[in-house]
Amino acid sequence: MVFGCHPQQRRSAVARIAAVSPLFGCGCAGRQSALDTAGSEADATSLLFWVLVGTGALIWVAVVGLLVYAIRDRRPTWSEDAAGKLILWAGPVFSSTVLFGLLTYALWLMPGLRPATDGALRIEITGSQFWWRVVYHRSAKPPAISANEVRLPVGEPVEFVLRSDDVVHSFWIPSLGGKMDMIPGRTNTLSVLANRAGTYRGACAEFCGTSHALMAFSAVAMMPEDFDRWLATQSRRPASAAAPGQDLFLRHGCGSCHRIDGTEAHGSVGPDLSHLGARETVGAGILPNTEEAIARFISEPDVLKPGTRMPSFRMLPPEEISAIANYLKGLK
């Protein structure tokens, strides 16, 4: 399931309480919720949120209580001196103290949200309209190129190096960690420590064009040994027997924009398709990864993702599109 709530992932107590109301539950639980956390940075942010909500609620109750007291008919008359003291203590003194406390708490949290990750796995992400280029760097190993999907090991800090090719994007996996802008000409970093295996949804969190809402990705937190095994497969050429789809893929010029390791396709304008068949989704999080979905994306990318730079190939015979889709689905 690409969108929506995943009831099986409602694990935290907060999410369980929130799940009492179906609509509210959808907002608080699931694989794209900053309140249903699976990473240490997201835990800290979530706790900050609840502290702020709790403090805000207490202040609201106190202010409404005072209001109710003030509009009562039979309230005792306060002396001017007592009223002045109430204004002084409940006004500037209380407000400043609460703000000081909350600001100190938030600032104290900040260094922990970006811990030093020297020597850790480094994942370089570049945002483009409307997809994500992903390159894995691990010391003493060749970089592995991927797109529109991020995989990371559980229990190991990961440093994301964030850039943009065109306009401002923002990288955010709500369940795992904080949000960070991707600004053309700048390099920002973000660290994430996943502490629960699972598949989460990341999204672009800064309006970046017509298909901004269709620029998502899957974030898969895996056990370390599974991750190492998976990363090794990404550095290898895709296991795919020569298929008629490959010839068609090359003959129709797909290789000028896309790269497939071990073939003549070396393009870098669009996503790397070397291991497309093993990814969770197609089209940067908008379709399930099936042959039909791939064929549909080849045929009408302009309909599925308005504003995309990929031209439509609906002029090709359906059987050729199916053959290409079959070939791409087989790239694992």
């Binding site: 500037p92 400043s96 703000l99 000081f100 600001l103 100190t104 600032l107 104290w108 900040m110 260094p111 970006r114 811990p115 030093a116 970093t189």
Partner: peptide, 23 residues
Amino acid sequence: SGLSFIAVVFVALPVLFMTECLR
């Protein structure tokens, strides 16, 4: 003066926790 005192404390507070440019 009271407002300015509080504002100066709030402005300076981050360097108490920030230990380097990025963190």
